[in-house]
Simulated scan of single mutants.
Amino acid sequence: MAGPVSSIAYVPLHEVLPAGFARAEGRLRELATRLERHHSADRVAWRWYPEHVEPDGTRRVLVGTTITLYDTRDDWLELSLQIAWQPDGRLGVESTVEVACWCADNHNMHPVRESARDADDDFELADEFAAGVKLLTTVLNEGPFEPQPWRVAAGLPVRPR
């Protein structure tokens, strides 16, 4: 793993994208930069995994970002966007809104909104990445920016007071 860095500009996409997807690099950078420049996305962290360039039958992240919108020592709200190998050997893009778990059996976090889409070529990869950026940008535009309303909307246990 490498990173974290605050901008996709520092991520060597040519090292992590499989050869058949390399032509998507320019569009991925453009979309990621648009996300980074959003006025509510001031805590962005990109990580990449050059050791995962080949699929191995498990879920393996190639590159991803986390945007922290709310973080205390014991509660959080984060947005994430990842390009990852899926267990079936296909490349996919996943975007999620995640909150800390307050279940009796602590699961650590819960995705309260998510999208996962596979990509068969570089054009689909860029399009699916654009859909992921759109999901996160919608949250950045509309909020809420605290985890509790997301838990309530998802029917999850609320944080004890």
Rank of each mutant, 00 (worst) to 15 (best):
134 K>M: 05
69 L>D: 01
131 A>T: 08
69 L>N: 08
134 K>A: 07
30 E>C: 06
150 W>C: 08
36 E>W: 04
113 R>I: 03
55 P>V: 05
94 E>I: 12
21 F>W: 15
86 Q>G: 03
151 R>S: 05
130 A>N: 01
25 E>D: 13
1 M>F: 09
136 L>K: 08
100 A>Q: 08
126 A>Q: 06
155 G>P: 04
49 Y>D: 08
58 T>V: 14
4 P>Q: 10
23 R>L: 14
152 V>I: 09
59 R>D: 03
41 A>H: 11
63 V>E: 11
88 D>Q: 10
65 T>L: 12
69 L>Q: 02
121 D>Y: 13
82 Q>D: 11
19 A>W: 13
133 V>H: 02
23 R>M: 06
82 Q>P: 02
137 T>P: 05
41 A>K: 02
51 E>C: 01
76 W>V: 01
59 R>H: 11
2 A>H: 07
130 A>Q: 03
113 R>P: 02
62 L>K: 00
34 R>M: 07
152 V>S: 04
121 D>M: 15
99 V>Y: 01
90 R>I: 01
40 S>Y: 07
156 L>C: 11
49 Y>M: 11
16 V>S: 05
20 G>E: 15
26 G>Y: 09
4 P>H: 09
68 T>C: 00
18 P>V: 05
154 A>G: 00
55 P>R: 00
54 E>S: 15
54 E>L: 15
113 R>C: 02
62 L>A: 04
96 T>A: 14
27 R>W: 00
128 E>Q: 13
18 P>K: 10
118 D>L: 15
50 P>K: 09
64 G>A: 13
145 F>Y: 14
88 D>I: 12
71 D>S: 11
125 L>D: 01
58 T>F: 09
141 N>G: 12
104 A>P: 10
50 P>Q: 03
152 V>A: 06
3 G>M: 08
131 A>E: 13
124 E>D: 04
15 E>S: 03
104 A>S: 14
82 Q>V: 14
160 P>R: 08
42 D>H: 12
59 R>I: 05
102 W>Y: 15
63 V>G: 00
1 M>L: 08
71 D>I: 04
9 A>S: 04
123 F>G: 11
17 L>S: 00
20 G>M: 12
17 L>C: 01
108 N>Q: 14
7 S>F: 02
38 H>Q: 09
17 L>H: 02
119 A>Y: 00
27 R>Y: 02
115 S>M: 11
149 P>R: 10
149 P>F: 01
127 D>H: 06
141 N>E: 15
94 E>M: 12
50 P>F: 03
41 A>I: 10
13 L>Q: 06
117 R>H: 08
140 L>W: 11
86 Q>N: 13
130 A>E: 11
87 P>T: 11
98 E>Q: 15
128 E>A: 09
7 S>K: 10
28 L>G: 00
68 T>Y: 00
135 L>M: 15
47 R>Y: 01
153 A>C: 09
80 S>W: 03
100 A>C: 13
61 V>C: 10
61 V>I: 13
106 N>M: 12
30 E>D: 06
67 I>Y: 03
123 F>Y: 02
63 V>R: 02
60 R>V: 07
34 R>G: 13
17 L>F: 00
137 T>A: 14
79 L>N: 13
27 R>S: 06
49 Y>V: 05
